[in-house]
Design a binder for these strands. Structure first.
Lengths: 246, 246
DNA sequence: CGCACTTTTGAACAGAATCAAGTTTTGTGG
DNA sequence: CCACAAAACTTGATTCTGTTCAAAAGTGCG
């Protein structure tokens, strides 16, 4: 994990301009906050940095430093059981905030690592909290974000606990598609830089089963996957498959 | 859902006294809040009422009224898929707060119903929010609560996505045992007023499989279940089973 | 006491895990 | 740019676990 090398004034100005579009402010915390509040919020966001694919953001047990907003790239959240086997509990993209797990325990309780080259902002939590005192809308946004995450977790986990391998995979693809669309991406064609192994771990399936499920969805004409690029060819069909519950 | 019939002054006073020990304040929101804050918090808690076993607290789509703190009893949270089949996503006991899902959408997004006769407090969220402006500690507690729920959800769901039927059931029993112990109950012997069907739905198993898993745990000498009363006879063994991941 | 519901148990079946090759892709260094 | 090695993916055969359906036994409430 290395900081960006933004030494010159020009570079810093560019970074600042870029950060204006940052999801940290707009999608997560900054919505409906007034201009002065946004300025303060920007100041609170400590530094931007990159992770290479495979790099860890933090590990289980690391002291809580703050939240991280994903500006670009893909990350995964996972835990390990006593045997050291990894279990993927979340896949994150641009606009998501990770690190919430550390708020309660003062230590991070998940492993988080980059699946693809990613760009992040660190948000020291005390600063956010201090700021929230003076900005009612920011407080509301924080609560909303937590609630949203709670809901999404419960909802997606519930959907993935039952049903065939194809159904679960279809659910994951739709979830990804929707989230990308909400962030201005193409819902029908996107990159899913996650190994079969990790997808399987997330869905409660083996890597082999995930491969077969992809083949099945392809045969049904619902989605094509060439390596790690997904083409959703019939999203209505996918939705029908998911809601049929089979 | 019917309000308690507390008409006389005496009864109200008794209720007030009872509410002092209420988890709403102590375990959830009131921790480390000063006396004046606690007084205000008590005022914000609107009314206490009972649910009979099987009664609904709210249903999917009901307008968000507020959060509910469980004073006693057991509730379940569930969703329905398009076919109307129920999926249990959470089991709640004394000290838990339900309704958080409504914060973001202004509508409740789960069904919640009582599994046993239960006593609840309603917490109108605007009041809590208003209050939080003046009470930094209350703000922190709210954040902590959300974070705790996020963690617990991710953690337990993750544990239950893999492993045999016995392992998942063992995980559920340990979770229940721990939560009860944290609330001053007996961790080795408790009532689990949840049908095999609901347990199965929560764990992603059929009712038959749950029954067989109980039989298995009994044979292994780890836990006994007579109907809906659980006796944990070897909690270390249960933990070993869960962490072995088999 | 009897009825409705839950739970237990059994047998046949289905889906995914696992193990094992074989193939494609990716990344690295020459 | 190519060759090689490592990793990821596909595919097949077998095994295992849990599902489903059905019947019997137990429980609780009127």
């Amino acid at each position: 994990m290395k900081a960006l090398t933004t030494s010159t004034r020009q570079k810093q100005a560019a970074a600042q301009a870029l950060c204006t579009g940052c999801e940290v402010r707009n999608a997560c915390f900054g919505r409906d906050v007034d201009a002065e509040g946004l300025r303060q919020l920007d100041q609170a966001i400590e530094r931007r940095f990159r992770l290479a694919a495979g790099e860890n953001l933090y590990r289980i047990g690391d002291p809580f430093r703050g939240l991280y907003a994903i500006r670009s790239g893909y990350l995964k959240t996972s835990i390990r059981d006593d045997r050291g086997r990894e279990q993927v509990v979340g896949l994150h993209m641009k606009g998501d905030v990770v690190g919430v797990g550390g708020l309660e325990s003062h230590f991070y309780i998940f492993d988080v690592s980059a699946l693809a080259p990613s760009e992040l902002c660190e948000i020291p939590f005390e600063k956010l909290e201090t700021l929230a005192r003076g900005l009612p809308q920011l407080r509301r946004n924080m609560v909303k974000m937590f609630a949203l995450y709670l809901n999404r977790d419960s909802g997606t986990h519930a959907l993935r606990r039952k049903g065939s391998a194809e159904t679960r995979l279809a659910g994951l693809l739709l979830d990804f598609s929707r989230r990308l669309e909400a962030r201005g991406g193409d819902p029908a064609s996107f990159s899913l830089p996650v190994s079969r192994e990790d997808i399987g771990s997330h869905l409660g399936l083996s890597a082999a089963a995930v491969g077969r499920a992809f083949a099945q969805l392809n045969e049904l004409g619902l989605a094509k996957a060439s390596r790690r690029v997904i083409e959703i060819t019939d999203s209505a069909g996918l939705r029908a498959l998911v809601s049929s519950g089979v």
